[in-house]
Design a protein around this nucleic acid. Structure first.
Lengths: 183, 183
DNA sequence: CCTGATATACCCATTGAGTGAGTATATCAG
DNA sequence: CTGATATACTCACTCAATGGGTATATCAGG
């Protein structure tokens, strides 16, 4: 889990349900419109995740018959689901490029929706993780035997990507009006 | 498949077998030493992949009893496996950051081992893909409705990552002495 | 001599990711 | 009346990945 657990399309669906009950089709639609360039989530994948969430007790479902269209599974978030969602919202996402683009942005999206006052804190802890990661990569590269060409190229790219993300985070600071003196 | 099929730890194992027969434990060791900072492949994952490769007929296995240690499965690449491997070696890997760091580097590694003369061609087609991707991202961003904050942030980051990779590719050009006038 | 770390060598169960296709019905434009 | 599009969901399958478990052998330290 944690670092690359790739769990957040799950939490994103949960996050939409925090605003009120809904059903699979609609959740997938909203996801696609709002975060479709962040992740790609297929319809069947969305249904699979929702089923899992139900099995875990994070959401509850009840069938709603419709006059003309097929019946819907109306989905509600449970107390447990709500708790799990807000716990997730405050976790760090780790510091690899992919999970920052995917998970951190998703977290930011739902923080803005449900907990805007927490944004500075979430922002800062993410930035801290990135800076730690940069140091640890610099260290790794320094101690890598010189003949390890391909491992070095890989680590170099990762390091450069982390530095890029550091700058991109500065853009986010501006866009979300986060002041500098937090943490 | 193709773009993000995530298939190359498979081909990497196959690629080690091009140099001669071996067994699971050793292949996993070599993988970890040579490409351990490119991918992380757990031992059990390695065995799972090798089993799949055998089922497909890309490798063949026969048991070798050992005097003291447990028996080994000696693995040999088949004609089919060899063909599949060299086909893969010439394919493009697509243009997302992750698959370039993982798949492209792996391909480069095995090209150097088994087909050094093909490096310029592989390099160039990868670079072309990256440049196409940059254009297509620029286009997407341009036509994105301004209210789509999070989708925009995601696309922005991807674009910047692609530009970074473009520069990183230039470093590779130098390191591998690839001349500029190819393709 | 015994113990514990390390290396060799492999397997299995489970969870999850992800695709592709199928099943229905309703609406609306041409 | 036909075909595209939208609503709404299900199923079967493959692959990814982790975390454990199972053995045996070697070798160093107490």
């Amino acid at each position: 889990m944690g670092i690359s657990g790739n769990l957040s399309p799950e939490f994103a669906l949960l996050g939409f349900l925090v605003s009120g009950q809904s059903h699979g089709y609609d959740l997938h639609q909203r996801f696609t419109i709002e975060l479709g360039h962040v992740w790609h989530l297929s319809q069947s994948q969305a249904y699979a995740i929702l089923k899992r969430l139900e099995q875990r007790g994070d959401i509850s479902a009840h069938v709603v018959e419709q006059e003309k269209l097929p019946a819907r599974q109306m989905l509600k978030i449970t107390a447990q689901g709500r708790r799990r969602f807000f716990e997730w919202l405050e976790l760090g996402v780790g510091a690899n490029a992919r999970s920052i683009r995917l998970e951190f942005l998703t977290r930011l999206y739902f923080s803005q929706l449900h907990r805007p006052e927490n944004i500075p804190q979430i922002y800062q802890s993410q930035l801290d993780e990135i800076e730690e990661r940069i140091e640890s990569l610099e260290n790794l590269i320094e101690h890598l035997p010189p003949e390890q060409t391909f491992n070095r190229l890989s680590l170099d790219l990762r390091l450069q990507q982390m530095r890029l993300i550091q700058n991109w985070m500065a853009e986010i600071r501006t866009q979300f009006h986060i002041s500098k003196d937090i943490g």
